[in-house]
Design a protein around this nucleic acid. Sequence first.
DNA 1: TATTGTTATACTCTATAACTATA
DNA 2: TATAGTTATAGAGTATAACAATA
Lengths: 177, 177
Amino acid sequence: MNDDALEPRELGAYFVLMEAVSLLQHRIEQQLRAEGDISSVQFQLLARLAGAPGEVTMTQLADGVVYSRSGLTYQAGLLEKAGLITRRPSPDDERATLVAVTDAGRDLFRRLLPGHVQVTRLLFDPLTPADVEHLREVMTRVRDHLRAQPPRSAAPRKRRSGDASAAGGAKRTTRAS
Amino acid sequence: MNDDALEPRELGAYFVLMEAVSLLQHRIEQQLRAEGDISSVQFQLLARLAGAPGEVTMTQLADGVVYSRSGLTYQAGLLEKAGLITRRPSPDDERATLVAVTDAGRDLFRRLLPGHVQVTRLLFDPLTPADVEHLREVMTRVRDHLRAQPPRSAAPRKRRSGDASAAGGAKRTTRAS
DNA sequence: TATTGTTATACTCTATAACTATA
DNA sequence: TATAGTTATAGAGTATAACAATA
């Protein structure tokens, strides 16, 4: 049962998890945009910096926020231009860039937090404290498991020959153009 | 404790939930792109159609997949161009468009499913059956709660002319440019 | 008038690759 | 040579608004 098939229960759990989170993300996105005109990604970066003791490097900042280096540079550029963070070369390692929140950044974060928390109420309201605890514990396991896995993106996974046409053939939906 | 502040436990649960799902989504995206050259959104639409009894309208298809009408039209256009779905005006209601999967679409879906399931293993492997059941039950409650809430997006939120600063203030990070 | 869907348009975001500079 | 970060660029995706057609 750990091979290829999902139990119906699992399938259901998977779908409802993704659906709920998707809905939640959407709400969060709207709240942050409406009240602070920033994206949830930018908010996460701000939160991470606001919570950090001192400065962090770009690499440290990126960790956990899944995207590419260039993506982070892009977002950091926006935040810096908005005066919410600062960047400066690290004295220790001249290659590294140290990032820090500005007062304005911290202010914005603090200003947005209550509304953000209010939205996350949508997640917690229907849950008992025990549910929350269990959810936290369970998702921690999942997170750790996911982080432990080889990103796989390393192996570009060559198409399973055979026909390829099946979909690939007819596809070309997006990429690869 | 249902006012403004989050319990530390809740905050932790919230963060780890979003992080884990984000990681999972990323993996799913990669798998679908690598093996079928489609996005997870397109896969969801395909899955929805493959599971449906007959044809569905665009509106029905959109439901649950959160985005805008135009977004759906865009995606449907891609899928149709790729020969994975068909669209035709509804006989009953000339305004409506009926959407259906093609054989190619169903084939692609079936071809991608195993790999997709394999990725979702990353979610289930570290969980006991009881965990899965609890997760499903809990997230169902959350989902229902979220769906019950007024989408708020209903109020198109008139651009706060005046200054736009309200929150923007120091911002202008992204939008509104 | 309200609803269904499409189109035009503008913009955000992300990823890849090339490049610079330091370790 | 490997690592940290930036830049250029290209493309996917999304949202808003205007539009057409039917109910």
